[in-house]
Write a protein that binds this DNA or RNA. Sequence first.
DNA 1: CTAAAATGATTCACTTGTTGAATGATTCTG
DNA 2: CAGAATCATTCAACAAGTGAATCATTTTAG
Lengths: 167, 167
Amino acid sequence: MDSPDPSRSKRTAFLLSQLGALASARFAERTRELGLTPSDAGVLRLLGRTPGLSQRSLADRLGAVPSRVVPLIDSLETRGLVARVRSRADRRNYELRLTAEGTKALGTLRGVAERHEAELLAPLTREESAQLESLLSRLASAHALDTELHRDMSVDRTTRRVTGDAS
Amino acid sequence: MDSPDPSRSKRTAFLLSQLGALASARFAERTRELGLTPSDAGVLRLLGRTPGLSQRSLADRLGAVPSRVVPLIDSLETRGLVARVRSRADRRNYELRLTAEGTKALGTLRGVAERHEAELLAPLTREESAQLESLLSRLASAHALDTELHRDMSVDRTTRRVTGDAS
DNA sequence: CTAAAATGATTCACTTGTTGAATGATTCTG
DNA sequence: CAGAATCATTCAACAAGTGAATCATTTTAG
């Protein structure tokens, strides 16, 4: 009717959403076969990189709320993958660490992630994959989706409190 | 420990998930300001392209289950954006069409989608954006994420029924 | 040093989005 | 015409996630 060229642009964002959903769904399938959720995987990865984290800081780095972390760690602890030990320095919080089993699971998970990536990028050549990664990487950092979710961003918590008072 | 190069590859899929989630969230924000959900937007877009669709075929193209389509259309009908008229050929199903208001909303939505896309791709040059679209496009079609969600795929329903009997 | 504020973990009630099974009306098949 | 299939609908159930309230502990201020 009014637009002679509906295919020009304006579908990249849509493709990004679709492919992102596909990637997430496939990854979820794969982790589910290991008895893990994607959130579980995120926790293991984070604790592998930063042992001794408290639930609060884990929540921050995960972009989650503390009350959500509780059942997450509960389940991992029950299955013997993560251990809660009270911090001797500050007995309010735990120091979360991977158990030997947890470390093993993390290893398995890395393999899964690699196969997942390989499958997803199979239609592209090595060069194209590298190009894609470079482009996505730039988008991610430009949009402040840093390596982990909004890293520290201690502003957030403050803001939340302040606006909480204001409303 | 065992891997000397943790940054080699294997994060493209992760980036894709993250950026996809970001794109979806931003789009949801924008549509919410119009009083629409992303699902609403999908329905309007589909009915704009294919008027007279039944709820069943709409569900198929949306990748949703029919019972989910009911409240979706209910809400759009209540707001006067979509009309249900009984098919004279087959009085079991409706023919769904956009009202004048619905068509207007679809127009607004197209503008929103364009601004959304522009904002998302702002960090890239025109060339790079085109490159990205090309790569994503190839990934999408290679993974059978065709323009719309799994197009017809009448196999799906059959399979579901068959495996339902088997289990 | 002690009272008040802040912080970490936890619980709980609640919302939201989604699903599968059962139902009624209509149409198709043999 | 009788039975199977199909469309729309309702409903109960479910998972994920959130915010508010609570308790123990630590920090801050007077």
